[in-house]
C-alpha cells in the first residue's frame, strides 16, 4: 500500500512507529497498517477486525475531541498529530496512541452500557465501550510533557 508523504512509518523487527496528521482522512491508512501488522504477528481475521476497530475508535476520538477546533490545543501553535507506537512483547501486542491535544478525563468517564444504548437506539457513545470490549487492556494517561497516551493491549494467547 502506498502511503501519503505525510505519514511517517518506521519499522524494526518487533516495533512499528507511525506518525500521521491528526485528521480523519488518515484513519483508513492507520487501520490498514495496524491490521497488516496484527495479521503478520498471528492474530486471526476476527481478532484483526477487532484490533482495527479499537484503534480506529481511539484515533477518531483524538481527531474529534482532543483536536476539536474549539479546544485549547489551538493556542499551542502546533499541528495536530497522531503518533502510534506499536510493539510486540512476548505474546502481547501493545499499541500506544499519543496526541498533544485536549486531555480527557478517561478515569471518570462512565459510558452507558452498550445494551442500554442500543435498546434506546442512541446515535453515539459506542467508541469507548468498543475499545474496552475488543482489547484486553485499555489505559489512558496524560501529562504536560508527553501529551495524552491511550495504551491498549491485546494478547495473542490469553495468559
Amino acid at each position: 500500500m502506498e502511503l501519503p508523504e505525510n505519514i511517517h512509518r518506521k519499522e524494526s523487527a518487533d516495533k512499528l512507529l507511525i506518525q500521521t496528521p491528526g485528521h480523519g482522512s488518515y484513519l483508513a491508512y492507520i487501520r490498514a497498517i495496524v491490521g497488516d501488522l496484527a495479521r503478520k504477528v498471528g492474530f486471526d481475521e476476527g481478532e484483526v477486525a477487532k484490533i482495527e476497530m479499537a484503534v480506529d475508535e481511539a484515533c477518531s476520538n483524538v481527531v474529534r475531541h482532543a483536536y476539536s477546533p474549539d479546544k485549547e490545543w489551538c493556542w499551542q501553535q502546533r499541528d495536530p498529530e497522531i503518533r502510534l507506537d506499536i510493539r510486540i512483547e512476548g505474546s502481547r501486542l501493545i499499541i500506544e496512541i499519543n496526541d498533544h491535544g485536549q486531555r480527557f478525563d478517561f478515569a471518570n468517564y462512565r459510558p452507558a452500557r452498550m445494551e442500554d444504548h442500543l435498546r434506546e437506539m442512541k446515535p453515539g457513545g459506542y467508541g469507548i465501550p468498543i475499545m474496552r470490549n475488543f482489547m484486553d487492556e485499555v489505559q489512558y494517561s496524560s501529562n504536560d510533557q508527553t501529551g495524552n497516551t491511550l495504551r491498549m493491549v491485546k494478547y495473542l494467547k490469553k495468559p
Partner: peptide, 11 residues
C-alpha cells in the same frame, strides 16, 4: 469497514 460513528448514525 464501519466504525462506531457510522453504526451510531445508522441506529
Amino acid at each position: 469497514y464501519i466504525g462506531s460513528a457510522g453504526l451510531g448514525a445508522l441506529i
